[in-house]
Computed example of a mutant assay.
Amino acid sequence: MKINENTLLEGHNAVLVPYNAEHVPRYHEWMKSPELQQLTASEPLTLEQEYDMQKSWREDDDKCTFIILDKQRWADTSVEEEQCMVGDVNIFLTDPTDPSLAELEVMIAEPSHRGKGIGKEVTRMMMSYGVTKLGVKKFEVKIGLDNQVSVAMFKKLHFQEVSVCKVFKEVTLEMMVDEPVRARLLDDTADMKERDYRQTCSNRQELVSQ
């Protein structure tokens, strides 16, 4: 999605940046993992296919993707951005007749960064972005039945379970964004900073220390 191609979102422990071509090799290595393939219901792609996928995520109007960076590592200018990557977060506008409906996906690919609250933080950040920039009024997540950690996280974020599909072995949870939900979401992400991505790349250490 073009809207976020120069957007950086900075939270407490994570930074969200646009998914660029230089991120693809690391992402491709992640997706060789059978565990991640199962958790994300994904098929392994060739590196060339992964580059094509990155381009479509950048160009298509129904996909909004950010790469999740470890903020502490990102603050060290000697560390390349690709080495700060820990996962990704996506919004898919799945219904052409209802652009206010969004499917949300979060992947913490680096095992060392799981269970530290990063998934919850970036989910809130992405939801806040979706509500304020994309006009999202209803979020939906589809999670494999085996992935009880993610199910529990979304329930803590006040998502409600609406259905279980035994065939695809997944559960669907939803959240309607009414005024109380919107107010709570914006309050939870009040400290989130939105920055110009290209400008920030050159002086990230200075910004983090502010």
Rank of each mutant, 00 (worst) to 15 (best):
A152R: 09
D76C: 04
E59P: 02
K133F: 13
M126A: 00
V15Y: 03
Q160G: 12
K155A: 15
D188F: 14
Q83A: 15
E5W: 15
S202P: 05
G115T: 01
V177K: 03
R195Y: 01
Q83M: 14
V181F: 09
I3S: 06
E22P: 00
V136S: 01
R182D: 02
S78K: 12
T123M: 06
E82K: 15
D95Q: 06
M85W: 04
V17A: 03
R198S: 08
D196R: 11
W74I: 00
F66W: 08
L101R: 09
G11D: 02
K2N: 13
K138M: 07
E121V: 06
N20I: 11
I68C: 08
E174M: 09
E43R: 06
G119C: 08
P34S: 03
S42C: 10
V141T: 00
R195I: 06
Q72H: 15
M192W: 07
M176N: 12
T77Q: 14
M85N: 03
K32G: 12
Q199M: 08
H28F: 09
K137P: 00
R182Q: 04
S100I: 03
A75S: 09
M107Y: 06
Q38I: 10
N147M: 05
V177F: 01
A102M: 07
D76F: 02
H158K: 15
P96W: 09
E50H: 07
M126G: 02
T46F: 14
L69R: 03
H28G: 05
N90R: 03
P96F: 07
V24T: 05
V171Y: 00
E50A: 01
K116G: 08
V131E: 07
K2E: 12
N4C: 12
V149F: 13
I143F: 10
E103A: 14
K2V: 13
G87T: 06
S56V: 13
A75W: 01
M192K: 05
K55A: 13
P99A: 02
L207I: 15
T40S: 15
Y27E: 01
M107D: 06
L157D: 01
L16M: 01
S42H: 11
E110L: 08
V177S: 04
V141R: 02
R198T: 09
D88N: 13
S33G: 06
M153K: 13
E22W: 00
Q83E: 14
G130N: 02
Q38R: 12
Q38E: 12
E105F: 04
K156D: 05
N203R: 14
P111R: 00
T94P: 08
I91E: 03
D188K: 13
V167A: 10
E81W: 00
